[in-house]
Simulated assay, not measured.
Amino acid sequence: MHVQEWLDTVPAAAVYAVVGLVIALESLGIPLPGEIILVSAALLSSQHGGVDPLVLGVCASTGAVIGDSIGYAIGRKGGRPLLARLGRRFPRHFSEGHIATAERSFQKWGMWAVFFGRFVALLRIFAGPLAGVLRMPYWKFLIANVLGGIVWAGGTTAVIYYVGVVAESWLKRFSWLGLVLAVAIGVTSMLVLKRKAKRAQPLAAAAE
């Protein structure tokens, strides 16, 4: 079966549900590839007439806002012991260096860290729980959360969708290349953030 024929068999409702769920879980603090899923779905919507990019953007934005809000509530209730437990459970994502990097961003930028954190893989996972742990006023968090979720999810969907439309004839012949490229970009960003976090670890240790 040709890739395009296979794409046409994918139910739109399943795409919306998967995107919203994965982004929500990532936003509440579970390390999942939310951005890669969103980029892949936006590319899919440019080739699959049944997937509406507007509905996709709404589902992604909703998942981001709800997930971050749940993460905030969990972080506010669990406090710093929660971060310690997450560090033991997910040492590659919630290491002391990663936490120190995210916490410095929050201390320096406040609610803007929540907004711009939506565009950074590391902070996207930390934003909700860490804002709760640091007792950021919820109204500030909610404003930054909603705006960041809409701009990130809606903007990413729109850009990738229109890129896919413009390159539709090319993507029909190499439809998997866009997905491979999205994965490569996601992996590269994670490696860069991991390197930054490792450099931050000695600073965190010195501050203790």
Rank of each mutant, 00 (worst) to 15 (best):
H2L: 12
H2W: 08
V3S: 14
Q4K: 09
L7Q: 11
L7D: 05
L7Y: 11
D8C: 07
P11F: 12
I23K: 00
A24R: 00
G34D: 05
L38P: 01
S40A: 15
A42D: 10
A42H: 11
L43H: 08
V51Q: 07
V51F: 02
D52Y: 13
V58G: 04
V58Q: 03
C59Q: 02
A60F: 12
S61V: 07
S61F: 10
S61T: 11
T62D: 02
T62H: 03
A64V: 03
L83Q: 03
A84T: 13
A84S: 09
R92P: 00
H93D: 04
S95W: 07
S95Q: 07
I99K: 00
A100R: 07
W109S: 08
W109P: 00
F115K: 06
R118S: 05
L122Y: 02
R124S: 09
I125R: 01
I125F: 03
G132V: 11
F141L: 05
L147G: 10
A153Y: 06
Y162A: 03
G164W: 02
V165K: 14
V166P: 00
L171T: 09
F174E: 09
S175W: 05
G178Q: 06
V180R: 06
L181H: 04
L181T: 14
V183K: 03
T188I: 10
L193T: 08
R195M: 03
R195S: 12
A200F: 14
Q201C: 01
L203V: 12
